[in-house]
Computed example of a mutant assay.
Amino acid sequence: MTKIFMGVGVSFSLMMTSVSADDLKNSLTDMLKTKETSGMVDLGNINLDAKPKQPKTRSSKAVIATVNGHKIIKKEADSYLDQRTQGKVTNFDHLPPEQRSRLIQELALPMMVLDAAQKELSEEEKQAVYTRAWMQKEARKINVTDEQALTVYNQLKQQAEENNTTQNIPPFESIKDKLKIQIIEKTLVDKLIKDAKIEVL
């Protein structure tokens, strides 16, 4: 039980900075869908008018590529291409071979990162990733208002005044976001403790 709560404590400190393998996959996918993809495979020079001499259109359910055993379906590539070209090209099969390869590389990048993470992370690291993922998911459900943060701030300020340490208290606006994070953390901890079945033997 001590080990579990130590893990939870560590995860809270990392909650706002790290993501799980699934979150990493989603964030990379979102990043690749933006116009700017510096550092990624460049589709900036894609020829929107270029087509193979005899274009053939496969079924949307057709497997058009495999990446480390993962199948990529044409429907996924068509949708991604539609987003990358802002609707100017919507059919993967209408791309020349070289541009098909570029698009598949972009589409496959999150899969490759996920595979590498699953192979190289230790069980302890994977547990930390899962814990952070749960923390982030639950934290997004909690809405902390400025008024709630101000209440906590005033409580801390009062305690500091009682201890004659008010000179160390920064302005509310400068620590408002940190206070909100602390409130979220406390809410999650209280929920975990309330729902936990703890037996001391």
Results as ranks from 00 to 15, higher is better:
Met1Pro: 01
Ser20His: 07
Ala196Gln: 10
Thr131His: 04
Glu147Phe: 12
Gln155Phe: 06
Ile64Glu: 00
Tyr130Gln: 12
Gln155Val: 11
Glu147Met: 13
Ile104Pro: 01
Glu173Ser: 15
Asp93Thr: 02
Lys3Ala: 13
Gln105Pro: 01
Arg140Asp: 13
Lys74Glu: 10
Phe92Ile: 07
Tyr153Gly: 03
Met112Ser: 08
Asp49Gly: 05
Met111Ile: 15
Val200Trp: 00
Thr2Phe: 00
Asn163Cys: 05
Pro96Ser: 05
Gly69Lys: 06
Lys88Pro: 04
Asn91Gly: 01
Gln159Ser: 13
Gly44Arg: 11
Asp49Leu: 10
Met1Ser: 06
Lys186Ser: 08
Ile142Phe: 00
Asn68Tyr: 01
Ile181Phe: 04
Glu98Lys: 15
Arg100Gly: 04
Met135Pro: 06
Asn143Arg: 14
Ala21Ser: 13
Lys71Ala: 10
Ser11Gln: 08
Arg100Asn: 03
Arg140Cys: 08
Ser38Ala: 15
Lys137Pro: 02
Leu188Asn: 00
Ser60Tyr: 05
Ala139Thr: 10
Arg84Lys: 13
Leu156Ser: 09
Ser174Gly: 05
Ile4Phe: 13
Ile198Ala: 00
Asn168Gly: 06
Met6Ser: 13
Ser20Val: 09
Gln158Pro: 04
Val89Asn: 03
Lys71Pro: 03
Leu14Lys: 11
Gly9Leu: 07
Tyr153Gln: 04
Thr17Glu: 12
Asp177Phe: 02
Asn168Thr: 11
